[in-house]
């Protein structure tokens, strides 16, 4: 208890000591900060790429839908009944109705200039059936959902792209999972790297620690400045990666107009994402600095 009170009372002094040590051990501090900078920059870049891959893959998935054609002989009431049955199924996100004539309009439009001449005459006796465009909540189960829809009465054909769509979804899942694993693995490696840097910094100062112990400094009194120093190394090390991500991504977003290749593969807007990422990097740098120091110094404080 006495130690705890003393620790809080001396916090400004500890902070001053930490700052002083950081400046006076300039070479060691610089190399630690440099290592943290490199690591956090790596995490930042990979994190940003992963964010975008995630976003692009989910926007692709959002585009995937089931096209349900109804029998051309049924009336509006029957068509509506089919819609209700589809909605009642599991895994349905949205159902959009398109009437017979709307389907004809779409067909005409898809044929370009010649469309009107070719198909306008069918307006009186429309050979097309009404249709539903169904989007699903879980694209992984799109095949099963399509099968269930096929079984509904008055449904003529169901099209979701078949195996090629399933394959696409599988690929997207692999990319996404792979990306997540990669980011997590990189994060863990980064933590070890930062912790190791802090450990080396502390190892070079074990004589200093033994002196502190000799004059009767309590363990917390010794530990706190080292932890604060670790935090400062983490924070200073995070500055450059944060600035780089903030301005760098903004720049990339501007010159690409927010698109990769096509409109469909759009980049995540800067702003919120960058703020989140900057927060994560600052937190990671400071957190690992504090925890790394705490762990590294432990073995020098044993009796």
């Amino acid at each position: 208890m006495r130690e705890l009170i003393s620790t809080f009372k001396n916090l400004p002094r500890h902070f001053k000591t930490a700052l002083q040590n950081l400046i006076r051990n300039n070479v060691m501090s610089f190399s630690s900060i440099f290592a943290v900078t490199i690591t956090l920059a790596m995490i930042g870049i990979v994190g940003l790429v992963a964010f975008n891959v995630q976003d692009i893959s989910s926007s692709i998935e959002d585009e995937i839908s089931i096209y349900v054609k109804l029998d051309r002989t049924i009336d509006d009431a029957q068509a509506e009944a089919v819609g209700t049955q589809i909605l009642a199924l599991d895994n349905i996100a949205n159902v959009e109705y398109s009437s017979k004539s709307a389907e004809l309009d779409r067909l005409i439009e898809s044929q370009g200039e010649a469309g009107a001449a070719l198909f306008e005459s069918y307006r009186e006796d429309n050979p097309l059936g009404a249709a539903y465009t169904v989007t699903v909540t879980n694209p992984d189960l799109i095949g099963q959902t399509a099968q269930k829809i096929t079984a509904i009465e008055d449904v003529n054909t169901v099209d979701y792209g078949g195996d090629s769509t399933t394959d696409l979804i599988k690929t997207l899942n692999t990319v996404r999972n792979g990306g997540t694993i990669f980011v997590v693995a990189l994060g863990v490696i980064a933590l070890f790297m930062i912790a190791n840097t802090v450990k080396i910094t502390i190892d070079t100062r074990k004589t200093e620690i033994s002196i502190m112990r000799m004059v009767g400094a309590s363990n917390w009194y010794i530990r706190i400045p080292f932890m604060l120093e670790g935090m400062l190394i983490g924070l200073v090390g995070a500055i450059l990666p944060c600035v780089m991500l903030f301005y760098g991504y903004d720049y990339i977003y501007k010159i690409t107009n927010g698109m990769v290749v096509t409109q469909m593969l759009s980049l995540v807007e800067p702003g919120a994402v960058i703020v989140q990422l900057v927060q994560a990097l600052v937190g990671l740098g400071a957190g690992v600095g504090i925890i790394g120091s705490f762990i590294s110094i432990r073995r020098y404080l044993k009796f």
Binding site: N21, R24, T207, E208, R213, V215, G216, A217, S218, N219
Partner: peptide
């Protein structure tokens, strides 16, 4: 143990001063 050691002053052959602290700060540390 730290509290016990406050009763004892120890001096070593290799001086063991804190290299990043001034003379004043080294003495003040105790």
């Amino acid at each position: 143990v730290p509290y016990f050691r406050r009763n004892i002053g120890v001096v070593f052959q290799d001086f063991r001063l804190l290299p990043t602290k001034t003379v004043f700060e080294n003495v003040a540390y105790a």
